[in-house]
């Protein structure tokens, strides 16, 4: 079942100026309900534009964005409802924190939805739980938190809107390895608890291999390929040809195969690679 469908979507930046750039050309694909879909591509390949199209922050020049089969721009006045259903966590979301306390900041979205006080405070607690923020931190100023905590507080602000689709743009960028780990854990936790659809943009192929069910590859505003994570990373040669990475472990296994080792299917996580190698080496 397709949760989100893009139909022949085109988008152009700074139209009518010398800086006109086509960010997306005839983009067409589906995001399956309840899965984690990753979007990969170089900076400038149109990923960020795509994310803003998914929740109606940008409007396609032509083509349609369908949520549960309905065009999100059918009633332009009600576009903010779409933004509650498709929650977008932008890059470095901690730079959006503004309230006096963490709890109030997480409550900003739910408040804009017009929920009751009780419902709001319940959602704040729940969202804080999902991202692993201690209750003790909720009454602190968001500016007193550590970098990783700020990031999680900002993500909680979106989760508290109970979106049906959670979209995250480079959620772990700039964090230390332990911080990265926690953010990935948060995302998996969110999915396990809510069953919602998740879309992630990241440059880290290792992270993508870890959390994604499906992957879409963008190249210069077009879909280069899409499919299950296994399918996409098994086309490692094609990815490398356009200058994209594959997970380190995949690269290592490809190298082994090229050196003559008998490896039938190329794994993309260490957990996956281990039994294959053991069979070979034992």
């Amino acid at each position: 079942m397709a949760k989100i469908r893009l139909e022949k979507v085109n988008y152009t930046y700074s139209a009518g100026t010398p800086f006109e750039t086509r960010a997306l050309r005839d983009v067409e694909f589906e995001i399956k309900e309840g899965l984690v879909t990753g979007i990969i591509g170089h900076t400038g390949s149109g990923k960020s534009t795509m994310m803003m199209l998914l929740n109606g922050l940008e409007k396609p020049e032509s083509g349609r964005v369908l949520l549960d089969g309905a065009d999100i721009w059918e009633k332009p006045k009600e576009i903010s409802k779409v933004r509650f259903r498709v929650g977008l966590v932008m890059q470095y979301p901690e730079y959006q924190l503004f309230e006096e306390t963490v709890a109030k900041d997480i409550a900003f979205g739910p408040k804009n939805m017009g929920l009751t006080e009780d419902e709001i405070s319940a959602r704040v607690r729940e969202a804080a739980g999902i991202v692993g923020l201690d209750a003790g931190l909720l009454e602190k100023s968001p500016f007193e938190l550590s970098g990783g905590e700020k990031r999680r507080a900002a993500i909680a602000g979106i989760i508290a809107m109970k979106p049906e689709v959670l979209v995250l743009d480079e959620p772990a960028a700039g964090l230390d390895p332990a911080g990265r780990e926690r953010i990935l854990g948060t995302i998996q936790n969110f999915r396990a608890q809510t069953g919602a659809t998740v879309i992630i943009v990241s440059h880290s192929m290792e992270d993508m291999a870890e959390v994604c069910d499906e992957i879409v590859v963008l190249l210069e505003g077009r879909i280069l390929m899409s499919g299950s994570t296994r399918e996409i990373f098994s086309r490692a040669d094609e990815l490398r040809r356009v200058g994209l990475d594959v997970p380190e472990i995949t690269g290592l296994m490809l190298r082994l195969r090229d050196m003559g080792a008998e490896i039938d299917s190329i794994p993309f996580t260490v957990k996956d690679a281990l039994p294959k190698l053991m069979k070979l080496l034992k």
Partner: peptide, 16 residues
């Protein structure tokens, strides 16, 4: 650029 980004982020949380 930063202002545009923050505006987009708050709009994503339903700011009007």
């Amino acid at each position: 650029e930063e202002t545009n980004r923050i505006m987009a982020a708050q709009k994503a949380r339903g700011a009007d």
